[in-house]
């Protein structure tokens, strides 16, 4: 398959290393440039502090789940990773976040480019009021990533990636709102993948879907790794267990604990984590 959209050599190298990686030696997050590296990250809006002191490395080509009770700051943290909070009134941030070694909030860093490299999927499917085809290529066109003649094939490739091609091939020109909720979410995923992001941020992507659609989305997400780095916010602990390589537990605006998913669930180090994963609160 040809990559029509362009590449990011830094991540590509990291990914190749990651694919060759685990058997070869030391833990991945030590050996490679992390997809995200956060040091002392704090976030607030106006007088209200939402997050503080987050130190976290996210290894490339892995799935990281962010879990925690409502209002713990996990979604805010996620939106900080693609600078989606920039335009929220009163937004302030401290500490550093780097995206594959580059300072995410450097003043020379174009937020639009950041968002091209760091895609996002929301809680509820949000296709644009355009045709299915126009939806898939919306980002490609916005960033002028491909000539007009290639747009059709990008649509097909992206829809095939998410397994939606067969269902919509004969109605690319019609409205996306005729699709089921699960299909709409897959379409949004195809739209996010069409611009060839390095990282995908998911904000409870299956919370408005039925179990069958949820399974389809989860299977798909698993298949995208390690070609892609995935960070997923979820309220569903079972989903975190099924999907994530590593899980991060947030509580009260702090990152309480992080670890390999199985380790965090089976053998949590902190009292709060233990209470949360055993269902005693949350």
């Amino acid at each position: 398959m040809t990559d029509a959209v362009g590449t990011h050599t830094g991540t590509e190298t990291a990914l190749r290393q990651a694919e060759a990686g685990p058997a070869a030696g030391p833990p991945r997050e030590v050996a490679f440039t992390p997809a995200f590296s956060c040091r002392g990250v704090g976030v607030g809006f106006g007088a209200k502090t939402v997050l503080e002191g987050v130190d976290l490395d996210i290894a490339p080509g892995t799935v990281t789940a962010l879990v925690g009770p409502t209002g713990c700051g996990k979604t805010t943290f996620l939106r900080t990773l693609n600078r989606l909070n920039d335009r929220v009134p009163g937004f302030r941030r401290s500490g550093t976040i780097s995206l594959v070694g580059e300072d995410l909030y450097d003043r020379h860093m174009d937020p639009l480019v950041v968002r091209r490299r760091v895609g996002m999927l929301f809680q509820r499917p949000n296709p644009f009021p355009l045709s299915i085809h126009e939806n898939v290529i919306a980002g490609v066109k916005a960033h002028r990533l491909a000539p007009r003649s290639e747009l059709r094939s990008i649509t097909e490739r992206s829809l095939r990636e998410v397994g939606l091609w067969e269902a919509v091939a004969d109605r690319l020109g019609s409205s996306p709102f005729r699709l089921s909720g699960g299909q709409q979410q897959l379409l949004c995923l195809a739209r996010a993948l069409a611009v060839r992001p390095d990282v995908l941020l998911l904000d409870e992507p299956t919370s408005s879907l039925d179990p069958v659609s949820t399974e389809a989305v989860e299977d798909l997400l698993r298949s995208l790794v390690p070609g892609l780095t995935i960070v997923i916010v979820t309220h569903n602990l079972a989903q975190a267990r099924r999907l994530a390589d590593r899980t991060v537990f947030f509580h009260g605006g702090r990152m309480v604990e992080t670890g390999e998913t199985a380790e965090l669930f089976e053998n949590p180090q902190q009292e709060e984590t233990r209470n949360y994963v055993s269902g005693r609160f949350g």
Partner: peptide, 23 residues
Amino acid sequence: AYRDGSEALGMPSGYALRRVVLR
């Protein structure tokens, strides 16, 4: 949701306005 979606895709605000929000 339209604004969030277009912003998260990295559309410039004027472009998002013309292509997605205005419609």
